[in-house]
């Protein structure tokens, strides 16, 4: 009987890490500047840039929804993968517990983001 090929789950996590890192490298600085500094201080952007009505409309729009989902979840998966491996470098050896901790938080964040974006409506 042929043994089933035992496949590694590493490429999946590595892909999410790479996608999140790339998205953060390309858009991260401007996202932080807009959401955390310019909009709250009313710099450059109109004072109601991130208002409830604006953001509701943005997140009810399919591309807007996908954009928010991609940013939140890929940033989290990027960080989780990097932290998981950095913990190993700091002496917390890779095991099921540290893996469950890092990727578990990412999975929870992904589910929460998906849930929130679905109940926001379309």
């Amino acid at each position: 009987m042929a043994h089933p090929v035992k496949r590694s789950n590493a490429p999946v996590f590595w892909l999410l890490f790479g996608a999140g890192g790339m998205l953060a490298a390309l858009l991260g600085p401007m996202l932080v500047l807009i959401t955390g500094i310019a909009a709250p201080l009313g710099w450059v952007l109109p004072p109601d840039a991130l208002s409830y009505d604006n953001m509701l409309a943005f997140s009810r729009n399919i591309p807007g929804k996908l954009f928010i989902f991609a940013v939140v979840t890929l940033f989290v998966w990027h960080a989780a993968h990097r932290i998981y491996h950095t913990l190993h470098d700091l002496g917390i050896r890779r095991n099921r517990l540290s893996m469950g901790f890092c990727y578990g938080i990412s999975l929870a964040a992904t589910l929460l983001a998906g849930y929130a974006l679905v109940i926001i409506g379309f």
């Binding site: 996202l31 940013v71 939140v72 979840t73 940033f75 960080a79 964040a109």
Partner: peptide, 9 residues
Amino acid sequence: VAVYAFVLL
């Protein structure tokens, strides 16, 4: 990066 993702979340 994770902290910022949680701020957005």
